[in-house]
């Protein structure tokens, strides 16, 4: 299946990557090359195969419901959370005004 330039533009927009016309021109044949190559997977009969879920047999561990049990994954660290923000005001992150 080959994709056209409009599709590349649509996917780029879905991925929130602005693309110039030149970039789209460059990307289109590259993507088609890669997609054509990965499509050889269609040759493999997988009708009786389950998709991989866990790479190494292992089950999901659940944690206890304790607040801030480990400071590395707990809350109450607003300064750390905001430390790298391009815009932080009054304890909030700032973004361009959104109209819902």
């Amino acid at each position: 299946m080959s994709i056209d330039r409009a599709t590349v533009a649509k996917i780029a927009s879905l991925a929130r990557i602005q693309m110039s016309d030149e970039e789209l021109d460059r990307m289109e044949p590259e993507l088609n090359g890669i997609l054509k190559w990965v499509e050889q997977l269609g040759e493999v009969d997988t009708s009786a195969v389950e998709p991989m879920t866990a790479v190494i047999p292992n089950t999901l561990r659940l944690r206890a419901d304790v607040v801030d049990a480990d400071p590395k994954t707990g809350g109450s660290r607003r300064d750390d959370v905001l430390a790298n923000a391009p815009v932080a005001e009054h304890g909030f992150f700032g973004v361009p005004k959104v109209i819902e």
């Binding site: 590395k72 994954t73 707990g74 809350g75 109450s76 660290r77 607003r78 750390d80 959370v81 905001l82 009054h90 304890g91 909030f92 992150f93």
Partner: peptide, 11 residues
């Protein structure tokens, strides 16, 4: 208070 109950994971 805003962003006080936020972990590195949530952010």
């Amino acid at each position: 208070e805003p962003n006080c109950n936020v972990s590195l994971v949530d952010a």
